[in-house]
Structure formats: structure tokens, C-alpha cells
């Protein structure tokens, strides 16, 4: 078994680097190439500052200041006809630029157009809730808080949605270890049996391929009947696995394989 290492400070350093080939971005085209999107962009520009705007994969992408997100969503819903907020979440760019990217994906049923509004926020910065405009923002923003720790102002029920309420940390942060930190690895033991039971139950076994045939506490030996916790050597007799005792059980006869007929000819 791998030696148990405490994971207390594992979240303090970012393990994530781009280890693999990073795909080049899809080509961006200017907003003027699409008349519908150009009109939408003008409507936003009339009230808010737009930092960047382009069309990518037939979708308008608008980069705004994080303080304007509610105003922009209001314009999009009431003036531009984007009546659905299909997705809203965040991306962790903390290692690269110390910021989260928060994005909102909108869909207009009448115009058959999709667009995305993006903004960058600092680590402790909160965004305004879109829940008064779009009901779908309710759970999406709770998930954003749960997974990234991005707080949302004026949300009716700002609480974790997927992880338990007493969970420590936010799992989709790139600094969060895949196999969990110290609190996560003991979560169910602490929760059910209390911290005193940690020594009895022991740390998690994360080595998926570990097999120790002489460890009779945790492993059975195939083809042998080994009592739990007992010791055995190689001379142990083979006891074939059987679902029934030799003599059969009360009322039920044991199936005799020798007397059975195997049908090979289907038309028999």
C-alpha cells in the first residue's frame, strides 16, 4: 500500500499546468458580419461598457465589466428577446491571471440565436444574481458557488447544491486535488462515526490495483475458504466455490453437472 501522506496544505499550491497540447482557438469574426448580433451589441453599448465583442462558432461573445452583468441581462431579455439563460458558471483562471471568468449563455427562441456574456472577477469578488430575470439562474448560481466559491449577491438561497453543506473547499478549483483533500478523505468517517473512529477505520485505499493474498482481513483467496484474520500457507487445500452443500439442502436437490444435458442442436 502507498504510504499515507497528510494532505493539509495541498490546496496552497497549484498542481495544474498545461501538460498537454493546447488546441488553437476557433477563428473569431467581427460582429458587423451578422446584422442581428450587431443590433444586440448596439443595444448593450447604449447602456454599458463593452470591453470586447466578437462572433465565434455563430455565437456572439461579449466581454463586459462584472458590475454590469444584471443590466446587460436585463437589456438582453427585455430589448433583445433573449428569453432563456441556458447555462451559467465560472472558469478558474487563478493560476494564470488570478481571476475567475464568469459566463452566461443566452438563447433567443424568437431569433434562433445564442450568445454568451463573459466577465472576469477577482477571487473574493461577488457578482449580482440574475435570478429575478431568469429562474434557471437559481440553481446554476448555486452550483457556481458550490464548485468555485464564487459568491452571488441577492440570491434567494445561497447554499451549496451538489456537495454536502459541511463540505470543505470547492471541488472544481484547479488547486483542488482530484482525490480530495484531508477533510474530504475523512468526510464520511467524521460525519458518521466521529473523528475518534479514524484510527479504527483507517485511511482510504486509493491504490486501485492493490491485491495482497496473505492479507485475510481484506482479501479472500480465490478457490479457497480462508477464515477472516487467519493465516495460511501455500499448502492450504482447495475448496471449490459452490453455492450449495454436497448433500443438497432440505427439499432442494443439488444440481449434478454430470447428469445434465447440454443442448448443442437447436432443432432437437
Amino acid at each position: 500500500m502507498r504510504k499515507y501522506v497528510p494532505k493539509d496544505d495541498v490546496q496552497k499550491k497549484a498542481y495544474y499546468t498545461d501538460r498537454f497540447w493546447v488546441a488553437p482557438q476557433v477563428a473569431k469574426s467581427p460582429v458587423e458580419t451578422d446584422a442581428v448580433f450587431a443590433a444586440d451589441l448596439e443595444a448593450i453599448k447604449a447602456k454599458c461598457e463593452v470591453l470586447d465583442a466578437y462572433i465565434q462558432v455563430d455565437q456572439l461573445v461579449v466581454l463586459i465589466n462584472p458590475n454590469d452583468n444584471f443590466t446587460v441581462a436585463q437589456i438582453l431579455k427585455e430589448e433583445c428577446g433573449y428569453n432563456q439563460l441556458s447555462e451559467c458558471s465560472a472558469i478558474d483562471w487563478l493560476a494564470k491571471q488570478k481571476q475567475f471568468e464568469v459566463f452566461y449563455q443566452f438563447l433567443s427562441m424568437s431569433k434562433r440565436k445564442r450568445m454568451r456574456v463573459k466577465c472576469f472577477i477577482d477571487k473574493e469578488q461577488a457578482v449580482e444574481s440574475l435570478n429575478p430575470l431568469y429562474r434557471s439562474a437559481d440553481w446554476a448560481e448555486r452550483e457556481m458557488y458550490d464548485m468555485f466559491g464564487v459568491k452571488v449577491n441577492n440570491h434567494p438561497y445561497m447554499k451549496r447544491i451538489l456537495m454536502p453543506d459541511d463540505w470543505v473547499g470547492h471541488p472544481l478549483l484547479k488547486t483542488y486535488p482530484l482525490q480530495g483533500d484531508e477533510a474530504a478523505s475523512w468526510y464520511e468517517v467524521d460525519r458518521i462515526y466521529g473523528k475518534e473512529a479514524r484510527d479504527i477505520i483507517g485511511p482510504e485505499n486509493r491504490e486501485s490495483a492493490v491485491v495482497d493474498r496473505y492479507d485475510t482481513e481484506r482479501f479472500g483467496r480465490l478457490g479457497h475458504e480462508v477464515a477472516r484474520g487467519s493465516e495460511f500457507d501455500e499448502n492450504q487445500p482447495v475448496t471449490p466455490l459452490a453455492y450449495q452443500e454436497e448433500g443438497g439442502v432440505f427439499i432442494v436437490k443439488k444440481f449434478q453437472e454430470d447428469g445434465a444435458v447440454t443442448i448443442t442442436d437447436r432443432k432437437r
Partner: peptide, 13 residues
């Protein structure tokens, strides 16, 4: 599921 959210064996519980 060798991840943070999965109990590594129900015999822990």
C-alpha cells in the same frame, strides 16, 4: 471513481 466525492468501499461505513 477514484475521486473526492466517492466512498472508497462501502465497508468503510
Amino acid at each position: 471513481f477514484n475521486t473526492y466525492a466517492t466512498v472508497q468501499g462501502v465497508d468503510r461505513i
